[in-house]
């Protein structure tokens, strides 16, 4: 059998296959953070803290756990995307240098990027599906519309992931990831309408929240679960998130090329 050049889609799938080979051996390293963490959050915040909250206008009339569950779906995706888009990618550039090995094959830098993003999307998807199942079992899901939270979460996660992967490709040192975590991810998780409605924050903070993929993802997931999402709003959120993904992919292609073909 002779070696040959594969197409971009096939190349991305090969990237996923390589990751899967790794994952089969190393799934334990991230299983707890990926699958258990959101469940623990749902138990502590949704049920524990929620027991102190009287259902009211702020929670859409629902028990707090039901209010929180769709948002946690999105938060989990965004948080899982964080590690997979920073340290995991950085290591392949810098520590393990596996990407340098891959570009010596017919695979191009852009195809490496596609493979990585596809893999991250699959990871986010699996995390979201598992969480939705557990949340349903715990009684935090009460409508069939909540299922839409899964694609919403994956889309929001990728809207964060794609630009971050591009950013990672420009880094020579991992220090910036700390800042990214503390000043972007954590505030985004805490202040973008996931744990409490945005109106409880001062109005000048709202536009900042609107910029985050978390807010759009939570609007989509919660709106679908509560049946309060209009088609125009849904389209707007999806369009914004898709635009972030597109920007991330375009920048990522540029930076991967620059980094791997010097």
């Amino acid at each position: 059998m002779a070696a040959r050049v594969v197409g971009p889609l096939r190349a991305a799938l090969l990237g996923v296959e390589a990751q899967w080979t790794w994952y089969r051996r190393n799934w334990r390293a991230t299983a707890i953070t990926n699958f258990l963490q959101p469940v623990l959050f749902l138990l502590a915040m949704g049920l524990g803290f929620g027991s102190q909250v009287r259902p009211g206008e702020a929670t859409g009339g629902a028990p707090y756990a039901v209010f929180l569950a769709p948002a946690l779906l999105v938060l989990t995706a965004v948080q899982n995307a964080m590690f997979e888009s920073t340290y995991a990618v950085f290591s392949a550039f810098k520590w393990q240098k596996t990407y340098l090995g891959v570009v010596a094959t017919p695979i191009t830098p852009a195809q490496i990027l596609y493979g990585r993003l596809l893999w991250i999307a699959l990871r986010l998807l699996s995390g979201a599906v598992v969480f939705l199942g557990v949340a349903t079992a715990l009684g935090a899901v009460t409508s069939a519309g909540a299922v839409w939270g899964v694609p919403a979460a994956v889309l929001a996660g990728m809207a964060f992931s794609a630009p971050v992967v591009a950013f990672t490709a420009t880094r020579e040192k991992p220090e910036a990831f700390n800042g990214l975590y503390r000043f972007v991810l954590v505030p985004m998780m805490l202040f973008a309408g996931a744990f409490f409605p945005l109106d409880q924050l001062p109005a000048w903070l709202h536009p900042l929240a609107w910029l985050t993929p978390v807010w759009h993802g939570v609007e989509l997931a919660r709106g679908a679960a509560f049946g309060t999402l209009g088609p125009a709003a849904a389209l707007g959120h999806v369009a914004y998130l898709a635009a972030l993904v597109a920007v991330g992919v375009l920048l990522g292609r540029k930076y991967f090329q620059r980094r791997l073909a010097v």
Binding site: F49, V53, A58, R182, F183, V186, L190, F191, F195
Partner: peptide
């Protein structure tokens, strides 16, 4: 790497602002 050192201080402060004041409005007192 002082920036990274200083930034560690902000994390609990963010949590306090979000959970204490945003989240906390959902409950009155514990």
């Amino acid at each position: 790497a002082w920036l990274s050192l200083v930034s560690g201080f902000f994390e609990p402060v963010f949590f306090l602002l979000s959970l204490g004041y945003g989240f906390g409005q959902l409950v009155s007192a514990v």
